[in-house]
Write a protein that binds this DNA or RNA. Sequence first.
DNA 1: TAGACGTAGCGTCATGGGGC
DNA 2: GCCCCATGACGCTACGTCTA
Length: 101
Amino acid sequence: MAVTGDETETGSTVKLIGSSSIHPLAMAHTSTLISQKPLEDVTQKREQRLIKNREAARECRRKKKEYVKCLENRVAVLENQNKTLIEELRAMKDIYRHKNE
DNA sequence: TAGACGTAGCGTCATGGGGC
DNA sequence: GCCCCATGACGCTACGTCTA
């Protein structure tokens, strides 16, 4: 079950995926009852965590993109090297053939 | 030109690993 | 154990391109 389009307190959209269909705030409230922590505290902590994770995800994607670009560059370099070596080998073979004629 | 389709980027959740 | 961080997975939106 997946519920989409729920508006959060921040105005962003929250997606509830899989078996968990309980709103995060509701969960926070429930745990508050258990741990006796003020709801404001829990909400604020959650907000801070979301902000940090948002930035972490952004950074993670940036690094991944950079890594992929590096790999692509490496592929290009290796392909060039391969081409050069093939050419070199061909030339060597030519020389060898003429010597033996 | 409207709708289908592919792609990039984003936010969020879940989770594993490391530090304390 | 708890906390924090990094990252994979998922769903959503925006945008560009193609096709009938």
